[in-house]
Amino acid sequence: MRAPKFLLAVPAWAWLTAFFILPVATVVYFSFGYKPGLFGTHATDVLSLDRYREALSPTFFTTFVNTLRIGILGTLICLLIGIPMAYWMAVKVSPRWRTLLLALVIVPFWTNFLVRTIGWQVILAPEGWLSGLLQSIGLRDAPLAILYTRPAVLLGVVYNYLPLMILPLFVAFDRVGPALREASKDLGADRLRTFLRVTLPMARPGMIAGILLVFIPLMGDYITAVVLGGARGNMVGQLVASQFQAAQNWALGSAMAVLLIVVIAGAVLAGGLLAWLVSWPVRHRTRLGLADLENIAVQERA
């Protein structure tokens, strides 16, 4: 007798249940509790929505908007840099160099995330070499003042997450292959129209994968914000971490974490809806089907 097919999925499900579903359920449960005095971290004998009310304070709200702004901006910049880069690697570069380039894209991953980010701290510091160089060639007359600002965080997240955008985009562009681009040109489309109507629509799954791979971890990232953002580049991840670690208030930290999950899910849905609405006119204009052809009588061509 053959083993049932679902056995193949059992390891993954067991792992996800033990290390994802149960912890998230615990966090949700804790978020309805409270902090029972100075030395306790959480209690759940009385459940309420008070922590959510507490979490939605003006400070938290400001940080949340800031996080969302960095998240969306960072993802867009990754997309804008990633699309031409991935397209170039998949289409223009000779196969000989492609492997090397792919390896170079992944190279930053060989180093620890924290170390990489601290590297940027060194570069961007007011007394760092970049600052010195800019001053000595006369591009700036004062030391660089970018560290511990939002632009520094943005630079850090784009640097840290760009490979996660490039790799799925590369796979998607590579999959399209030269034959379809040639067919498009053969049918009268120039390079831009070929890209917009053939290459890009076919790379859509890769684009969605890249956006999700960058946007979701970026929203929860707090290392980049701590190292490069300081007080002015605050992100929600930092607030959540400080509630769990410094303030020892697990209930409030959980409520913030749950709100973060809800906002990420909401942002992803809103983004998808927006993309669908924006592309609607194009899809509507080019759509053609059996129903459109139904009542057309064909006269013999001379």
Binding site: A179, L180, D186, M202, R287, G289
Partner: peptide, 22 residues
């Protein structure tokens, strides 16, 4: 794309994301 010539390709090269009419 500016030549008044069209090609039927060896492996057809139909656009997979479009239906026949499109």
């Amino acid at each position: 794309h500016k030549r008044h010539v069209n090609t039927v390709f060896q492996n057809y090269a139909l656009f997979p994301h479009m239906n026949v009419a499109e």
